[in-house]
Simulated scan of single mutants.
Amino acid sequence: MGRNLYILAATLFLFALVSCGVSFTNIAQQPGSPGDTSLWRTMGLGLFVISLLVTLGGIFSSLFEQAERRAEEERRRKRSH
């Protein structure tokens, strides 16, 4: 599960970089495109924050899986002795 969360976080981070990049280029000022640069920056910041939260969830998921695995190994060792 942790790996899936890392992939999701990387994708969100990529979209955050793209939206921030759009806000600093002339693409946002072209006719027919959403021209509000503050909207692009806000969306980039929001995606970045969400990607950080998803990364934190992935870290916690990996840590808990590792703790459960070690606890199970310890129980097996105690049973065998």
Rank of each mutant, 00 (worst) to 15 (best):
G32P: 01
L5W: 03
R75G: 11
G32N: 02
S23L: 05
V49T: 11
G35C: 03
V49R: 06
G44S: 00
F13G: 07
S33R: 06
L63T: 12
V49G: 07
R75K: 15
R75F: 13
G46A: 10
T37H: 03
Q30T: 05
L52F: 10
W40R: 01
S51T: 03
V22M: 04
L17H: 11
T42M: 04
F13W: 10
Y6R: 10
L56N: 10
L47N: 00
F15K: 01
F24E: 12
D36W: 03
Q66I: 13
S51H: 00
M43Y: 07
M1Q: 05
F60M: 13
Q29G: 10
A67W: 15
T55Q: 10
G35Q: 03
F60V: 12
K78Y: 12
E68Q: 15
D36C: 02
G44D: 01
D36A: 01
L8D: 07
G35Y: 00
T37I: 01
W40H: 02
L8W: 08
M1N: 05
R77T: 10
F24S: 12
G2N: 08
E72C: 13
L39D: 02
G46I: 05
P34W: 15
V49H: 06
L56M: 11
D36Q: 00
T42C: 02
A16T: 07
G2W: 03
F64K: 15
P34D: 11
L63G: 11
R75E: 15
G58T: 09
I59Y: 13
E65L: 12
R69I: 09
F13Q: 08
F64N: 14
R41Q: 01
G32Y: 01
T55C: 11
L63F: 15
A67P: 10
I50F: 12
R76D: 12
Q66P: 08
M43G: 05
M1C: 04
I27R: 04
L63D: 11
L45P: 00
L45G: 08
L12Q: 05
V54R: 00
Q29N: 12
